[in-house]
Design a protein around this nucleic acid. Sequence first.
DNA 1: AAATGTGTCAACCGCGCGCTC
DNA 2: CGAGCGCGCGGTTGACACATT
Length: 482
Amino acid sequence: MVSQGGRCGISNSEGGVGHHVVLKKGPWTAAEDAVLLEYVKRQGEGNWNAVQKNSGLQRCGKSCRLRWANHLRPFLKKGPFTPDEEKTIIDLHSKIGNKWARMAAQLPGRTDNEIKNYWNTRLKRRQRAGLPVYPMDLLQQQYNQQHQQPPNISVSPSSSFASIISAAAAASPSASHPTFHRRLNQNSINLMKNCTPLDLLNHPTYCNNMTGTKSIPFLSRGLINNHPFSFQNSVLLNQSFSGKSLLFDANLGHNSSPIPLPVTATNTTNSFDLMRLSGMGTDNNELSSIQNTIQTSNNSGYMESDDVMGGASSGGDEQCDKIARGNSGLLGDLLQESQAIKRCEDSEDKDINGEEDGLSKDAFQDFKNCNIDLMSNVPKHISHSGLSISDRSNIGMNHEKAEVAEEMNIMDDDLMRLLDCPSPVCIPDWYDVGSSTNTSNYSSREPSNVTPTYFSNVKKDEDDDWDENFCCWNNMPRVLNS
DNA sequence: AAATGTGTCAACCGCGCGCTC
DNA sequence: CGAGCGCGCGGTTGACACATT
């Protein structure tokens, strides 16, 4: 059980111990603890590599430090985290990410390891449940702090689009951006200009953390309709969220991506991974797993303004670089982004109306050509909307916004019928307020009566951790064996 | 009762940073 | 200036307990 002879980090000769000492690994015994305790009492903390030399303990310095820090040092708190501590952790994580040591510094008596374990467990559980990583009240609260006033979101009650976005918000903190609703229709157009279809379909906001569910958590139906790639792949998206799948049909003919691409519908796959796969991306940002799950909507066209990232738009790698730089997934970044978006809203509104935008015309033309190529591969029964290819390519580019929206709505309905997409988001039964008695059924059902207002609709989620009426994460039902 | 899945905890590992020589 | 070393951090893994089928 307890392995012997570990090299424990760099080498066995750490700390100048030249002779080969077989260092013990595995669980510590009480005797070893006592030796270490005694040693630290005499010598103090630090100089851990000297412990083995001076105390005879057959543990490497690293192991000693870890044991001391996590178990032996005084004033360590043991036992489960208190609600306050949990709240603090979540709040801190939203601000600083996986900086466990820094979090531990804010939580007296708690170790980074403890916090890390707690977070990973929590994350796993929430991902399984299809819940956002952060409670929505936290997102809103931080947004409000940034903007000094509550968001004023109003979406038509009749808008199916709104229902999708609202439901999607429950699954993705990216959607917490209060201007997201209004802008997504606009940005679906810009998105088409800025992203390859591959990126679009694999944008993490579309296929991020809904493992185990069969839905398109973030997909605008208008966007689907206006993106020729999505006809086939929306079906795929609808089917393949519980494991590996093929991204494209082999006959789809996107010549810039390896086809077929194996894709896992977990948090580990995102558009940036795929950009790298297809040679588009820049360096890896070394994202944490959690951060991968909460990609911002950056390549939803938000990054077009130079104002956002302070550079000139030139397409290609630089575009990707911009995207990647805004890819921390931290709330702070999301909020910064929202501010930047606010600043450049006016100029983008002009873009929608046909004025020059930040994207090079060549890049746009490339994408347009690509669309045409792909449309030729779309089965006729799918491209039934009556629009010509050029019509599709022109959608949103030079029309009035109202016309675009109307066209989207018409096509939305057609497409949703085609896709046989009964529900934008699957909601477990136990998720419902007042039906907490059923804690063992994860079967999906259609969301009832989606309310129009964005934040009110995600109320369930924003309180899910804290409101006693809702399902506290650590009171969630265990995931049943399949 | 056995098999399997999940959660929790503890420990290890690799990497990077800062210091010293 | 660069190599070696000590240390801390974050990611990952393994063991065990418990729950579920």
